[in-house]
Computed example of a mutant assay.
Amino acid sequence: MLADFVREVQRVTTHLPLTKKFILVNDGSSDDTLAVMKALAASSDDIFYLSFSRNFGKESAILAGLTYSEGDFVTLMDADLQDPPELLNDMYQKMTTENYDIVGCKRRNRQGEPAIRTFFANRFYSLINHISDQEIPSGVRDFRLMTRQVVDELLKLSEVNRFSKGLFAWAGFKAFYIDYDNVERQAGKSSWHFWQLVSYSIDGIVNFSDAPLNFATVTGFVSFVISLCLAAFYMTKTLLFGDPVQGFPTLIILMLLIGGLQLFSLGIIGKYIGKIFLETKHRPSYIIKEKNLD
């Protein structure tokens, strides 16, 4: 899709008073993507490429593209044409006439996606907007036009555990979102599997909310109160009615309940500690194997 993507962007933005440059990021693909990138770069002085040593993930690819960008305006786009290039005209017009710092795109619907994916995506946005201080509009994509100032400020955020949609919201600035109907990819299929999306959603929640930690604390406290109430109940029952507790089933149930809650809470705490551990390593977010720009 790369050649079609570049051709389509150039076609629909011909009249814009801008000098356009493309930075294509190859995130460790196993097909002929790099060869296509090299061919495109050889055919135009305005096309550049970065190729990672392996797959580092979408967030690293976004970071690399922003790092090597130089323009007064920078846009992020998927190369499968799910981000409609014709919207670039409206985005540029909105930014320059109404003085916005960010103009993004937000899908009105998810037509064409599996129903279960749509359901959980909507639940994720509802949850994170409820427990986080940063509002992330439902359906918003990484496809957005940004001023140089916005990009420079985002690049100052040196964290390894990145969730770009949250970072865009955290940075602030004057933003506007253009609604559009969902567009299906023109070729191929998504490499994102359901559980990868779940993991990515959990990372977003952990990165921008401490609500799970508060939940673990409250769960522990409630479990402690329940255990005290049960102890008082059975003690009173035995003293007043001389009814010995039939303890084996009760004991097993309580052990499984308390043990499960403890492990669940430890898992939440461990997720945060794991993120801290990754940050302390100071590993680079990506390694570039080949490129044609400085």
Results as ranks from 00 to 15, higher is better:
residue 282 H to C: 09
residue 249 P to G: 04
residue 169 A to H: 02
residue 113 E to W: 11
residue 34 L to M: 02
residue 17 P to K: 08
residue 189 K to E: 15
residue 15 H to N: 14
residue 94 K to R: 11
residue 28 G to W: 01
residue 201 S to T: 06
residue 33 T to P: 00
residue 139 G to H: 10
residue 75 T to C: 11
residue 92 Y to C: 03
residue 164 S to L: 13
residue 61 A to V: 03
residue 106 K to Y: 05
residue 287 I to C: 04
residue 108 R to N: 09
residue 162 R to E: 02
residue 188 G to F: 10
residue 100 Y to T: 04
residue 145 L to D: 00
residue 260 G to A: 03
residue 53 S to R: 10
residue 62 I to H: 02
residue 164 S to D: 13
residue 255 M to F: 10
residue 259 G to E: 10
residue 34 L to W: 02
residue 141 R to A: 15
residue 106 K to N: 12
residue 151 V to A: 01
residue 37 M to I: 06
residue 282 H to M: 15
residue 29 S to R: 06
residue 25 V to I: 05
residue 154 L to T: 01
residue 99 N to G: 12
residue 279 E to G: 12
residue 240 L to E: 05
residue 162 R to D: 11
residue 224 F to R: 02
residue 252 I to N: 10
residue 45 D to R: 07
residue 56 F to H: 09
residue 52 F to Y: 03
residue 162 R to Q: 04
residue 217 T to R: 13
residue 230 L to R: 05
residue 135 E to Y: 10
residue 68 Y to M: 05
residue 215 F to Q: 13
residue 92 Y to G: 06
residue 33 T to S: 05
residue 227 S to V: 13
residue 130 H to Y: 14
residue 145 L to F: 01
residue 63 L to M: 11
residue 293 L to W: 02
residue 149 Q to D: 14
residue 67 T to W: 07
residue 21 K to W: 04
residue 40 L to H: 01
residue 79 A to F: 12
residue 236 T to H: 08
residue 148 R to E: 04
residue 117 R to M: 08
residue 161 N to Y: 05
residue 105 C to P: 02
residue 123 R to G: 03
residue 184 E to A: 13
residue 142 D to Q: 03
residue 51 S to G: 09
residue 44 S to V: 06
residue 157 L to D: 14
residue 114 P to T: 04
residue 119 F to H: 12
residue 176 F to Y: 12
residue 187 A to K: 13
residue 107 R to P: 04
residue 70 E to M: 05
residue 271 K to S: 15
residue 150 V to N: 01
residue 2 L to N: 03
residue 238 T to E: 13
residue 47 I to F: 00
residue 249 P to N: 09
residue 129 N to H: 09
residue 194 F to V: 08
residue 266 L to E: 08
residue 39 A to E: 11
residue 164 S to P: 01
